[in-house]
Amino acid sequence: MKLTIQVNEGPYQHQSADTAYHFAKAALEKGHEIFRIFFYHDGVNNGTRLTTPPQDDRNIVRRWSELAEAHNIDMVLCVAAAQRRGIVDDGEAERNGKDATNIAPGFRISGLGQLVEGGIESDRLIVFGD
């Protein structure tokens, strides 16, 4: 089946980003296709490369980046949510006059339409949140 996964919470504060990751990995191992992972609300904080978790803890952001690279997954941060929370890529930095970027590899910033499209194009939409 073709899946779209929505993640509504940031890393570490809530378990939802962990559950979403383990679910995504299990789905890929079973040969399912992930059409898109859409990060919304505080979930956009999964896409900053500037996190430094303790060495003995999981690195949630890097884990997403590696999953995206290994399986060519489209991982989208909602632009409105990202702007509110300061997640910035080159395009956003230029448009909004920011002096830095912080988006992690494998993520891109785009509109809410990408979530709606996920609902249209996928067999299942599954939401992980608080």
């Binding site: 509109g111 339409g113 709606v116």
Partner: peptide, 9 residues
């Protein structure tokens, strides 16, 4: 916001 954007689809 999702509902409003989604209306265009």
């Amino acid at each position: 916001e999702v509902v409003l954007i989604g209306a265009a689809f």
